[in-house]
């Protein structure tokens, strides 16, 4: 059984999707209209180096994901029984699953990106080589109040996020764990932590304006690891900004549902996380 995965912010590269925009002229025109700038120029040339900026990175990744997804679905009709996406990628999964249409997805993502970008002074770091439980314990030992586990990506891949200064201290403490490697990630905000609450509140109001359809193909949430339920959609997607991404849980849930093959658009980031998720100590 196949599932199609959509990555989130961080996979953006200048030149991405270059061959796609010409192939999807209508969608591209729509995106230009919604965003107010040329999506093609942003993705392919990025003359002003805006792809590093959350505000632009999210719509760019979302849109390229969406086109690639559409292409994949056309090539393999009926292959995918599940969709899932990592953080931002979850919006792509919802579009693929029929919960949102592309334009709505893009409008939401644009607003989401703006709100997220407003929260600054934060930082994120990737932690590799040790399980999340070790990271949590190390964080607890530091006594820091504003650093959190933000993504549980694979057995031994986690990200922490929080206050920029505290992240540096936490990184040092976690780095002292045997086998741990901590690398800073270049984002401005403390994504997926309670420090995002103000943005989540405001986004909740935005989400309330939109209607979520019943999915024609189920979507597994990267926050809960459960099937996405349109009724609680606004709440979940608002919560997503300040709650950790439980990717390992989503992967385990998909496997439990019978998924054996994971395909991915826009790179191989998630595939490597899937391979690194054995579920061995999750019971």
């Amino acid at each position: 059984m196949h599932c199609l995965l959509f990555p989130g912010q961080g996979v953006q590269r200048r030149g991405m999707g270059a061959e796609l925009f010409g192939r999807f002229p209508e969608a591209t025109a729509l995106a230009d209209e919604v965003l107010g700038y040329s999506i093609e120029q942003l993705c392919t040339r990025d003359p002003d180096r805006r792809l590093r900026d959350t505000r632009h990175a999210q719509p760019a990744v979302f849109f390229v994901n969406a086109l690639l997804g559409q292409q994949q679905l056309t090539e393999h009709p009926g292959r995918y029984r599940y969709f899932a996406g990592h953080s931002l990628g979850e919006y792509n999964a919802l579009v693929a699953g029929g919960v949102l249409d592309l334009a709505t997805g893009l409008r939401l993502v644009k607003r989401r990106a703006e709100l997220m970008a407003e929260i600054t002074g934060g930082g994120m770091s990737a932690v590799q080589g040790v399980p999340a439980a070790f990271v949590r314990r190390a964080l607890a030992e530091t006594g820091l109040g504003k650093v959190f586990v933000a993504n549980l990506n694979a057995d031994t891949q986690t990200t922490i996020a929080g206050d920029r200064a505290e992240i540096a201290v936490a990184a040092k403490a976690i780095g002292a764990l045997p086998g741990a490697r901590v690398t800073p990630i270049n984002v401005s905000g403390p994504f997926h932590t309670p420090l995002m609450d103000p943005a989540a509140q405001r986004f909740r109001a935005v989400l309330a304006e939109y209607r979520f359809a019943e999915p024609h193909t189920p979507v597994v949430s990267s926050i809960t690891g459960e099937l996405f339920d349109p009724a609680s959609g606004p709440d979940l997607l608002a919560r997503q900004l300040s709650a950790p991404v439980e990717w390992t849980r989503a992967v385990s849930a998909l496997r439990a549902a019978g998924v054996t093959d994971f395909d991915e658009v826009n790179g191989q980031t998630l595939s490597s996380l899937v391979r690194g998720t054995t579920g061995r100590w999750v019971r």
């Binding site: 399980p131 439980a133 070790f134 949590r136 314990r137 607890a140 030992e141 100590w281």
Partner: peptide, 10 residues
Amino acid sequence: SKALMAAGAK
């Protein structure tokens, strides 16, 4: 040991 580690115990 395994259970204590998985729980992040101290």
